[in-house]
Amino acid sequence: MAGAVPTYKLEFPYKRSLGPIVGAFLTGLRDRQVLGIRSAAGRVLVPPLEFDPETGEENLEWTRVGEAGVVRGFSWVEEPLPKHPLDRPFAWVLVQLDGADTNLVHVLDADSRAAVEIGMRVRIRWASETRGHMSDIACFEPEAG
């Protein structure tokens, strides 16, 4: 008795409250700027967290960081999954934006795995419409020149 196994779908439509830190960061993305948060020790966290993960410290100070940065880690995906941000081969990247001390997890639109390396400069490609969401950063792309 061959045949496809039937399936069912579970759906959870959430509306999430963002709070003062995540909300401000995503508001920044909507306005096409990237905000980080500076800890007392001077470490700039991007994306910002509500407390310093090393010290637990709150009351941090906002700072704006660059739209470009350096690839600190990557993984090349030859066959994207349906829900991945890009529908062609791409790299997951850890990007340290200029002025930040931590890495942002996002995707890099590059021609091939050979075109990606640790230390390369990349820049944000903004979505054509921004709305206050991680996908306002459509992806990163290699910095020209």
Partner: peptide, 29 residues
Amino acid sequence: REVLCLQLDPYYLMPLWPDYISLAALQAQ
């Protein structure tokens, strides 16, 4: 690769649907 995305932070990571193999790959690299 989809279900395990639900264990991620829902604001910064989950919207990108980074599958657990890709996240592990970043660690391996």
